[in-house]
């Protein structure tokens, strides 16, 4: 694999305050990399620096080995899918999609060939003469993607492209986007605050917090082996047990519940059930540990164990291998 984008000790300050502290990152060709984090964590700023809409305060960005510092946004060989799509309201679907090729004065026959190909690809052939206003949210999103990929960019930047859509549509478009990325072989840099989305699509996830990249790894590693307390609590649900100098994280699905009177020697802790939340395939059980103010969350899947009720006394246990030790 070769590196397509390299960030070399990039830093961004706004009016003297540091938004993104210096860091380096390499993104590989054909990779689906997600920048994941809560709002205000600097992920969009990072994306906009790569696109060329913001200038890094210091450091250098390389695209395919070439430094981008003095390359304006319109000369960078990458395209962006905007959060609100930013389709041109005074142009039809077709004109929107062709815009990039027109600006670069691509030859007419070539424009036409690529237009047909892309229209077919995103299934917009029938809607080509409509204006953005006459399209649904999902259709607008497809125009935004078509408008970007027709330029054959080296990298596609996506800024929460599914954020404005409803849940069902988002689910199906996640898969579509992932397939699109695989088929085109383009590098995707995808910004989202939705961890499910990040998990479902990414090759690697960079979890960001306060401008810093906390961890960058595959979805499975991020979930199973979080390196920082922030990652452990931000991704999925976690139980954090604090001891002097370190914390131990245990996923709720790894927490086993036992009746209080059996196998008593195995039990680490006991407690009282304070809440049971039924979610169909899953029940979330909240337990207040005896003698502390601490609450533990356990996930129980259907047909597993007992029919736990509020106020039951339970014993709690988990396997040593499911513990993740973090410094905190």
């Amino acid at each position: 694999m070769k590196t397509i984008i390299h960030l070399d000790t990039i830093e961004k300050q706004f009016a003297g305050s540091v938004v993104v502290p210096p860091f380096s990152l390499s993104i590989e060709e054909g990779e689906f990399l997600t920048l994941l984090g809560p709002s205000g964590c600097g992920k969009t700023t990072l994306l906009r620096m790569i696109a060329g809409f913001e200038e890094p305060t210091s450091g250098e960005i390389y695209l395919d080995g070439k430094p981008l510092a003095h390359v304006p946004a319109y000369q960078r060989d990458m395209n962006m899918v905007f959060q609100q799509y930013a389709l041109f309201p005074h142009m039809t679907v077709e004109q929107n999609i062709l815009f990039g090729l027109k600006m670069k004065k691509v030859d007419g026959a070539e424009q036409k060939r690529r237009l047909e190909e892309v229209l077919q690809y995103v299934q917009l052939t029938e809607l080509r003469k409509r204006t953005p206003k006459q399209l649904s949210g999902g259709q607008q999103q497809r125009v935004a993607i078509a408008r970007a990929i027709i330029n054959n960019p080296k990298v596609l930047l996506l800024d929460e492209p599914l954020g404005a859509l409803d849940y069902q549509l988002r689910k199906s478009l996640q898969l579509e986007l992932k397939n699109l990325q695989k088929n085109l072989g383009i590098t995707f840099i995808y910004v989202t605050h939705d961890q499910e989305e990040a998990m479902a699509m990414s090759d690697r996830i960079a979890v960001m917090n306060k401008g810093r990249i906390e961890q960058i790894a595959s979805p499975a590693e991020i979930y199973n082996r979080p390196q920082t307390l922030f990652v452990a609590t931000f991704i999925g649900e976690n139980n954090i047990f604090k001891a002097e100098g370190s914390c131990t994280a245990v996923r709720p699905e790894k927490v086993k519940l036992y009746p209080i009177d059996t196998e008593s020697d195995k039990h680490k802790k006991t407690g009282r059930i304070t809440d049971v939340v039924f979610l169909g395939n899953l029940r979330k059980i909240y337990i207040r540990l005896d003698g502390t103010e601490m609450s533990v969350l356990a996930h129980q899947y259907a047909n597993e164990g007992f029919d736990w009720q509020v106020d039951h006394q339970v014993a709690i246990g988990w396997s040593q291998t499911d513990e993740v030790v973090l410094s905190c």
Binding site: F53, A73, Y74, Q75, N79, A86, F99, G100, M103
Partner: peptide, 15 residues
């Protein structure tokens, strides 16, 4: 956003 989209698609400031 629209201006940025235009630039992103390769339009010079004049375009």
């Amino acid at each position: 956003e629209l201006e940025e989209a235009a630039q992103d698609l390769g339009a010079t400031p004049w375009q």
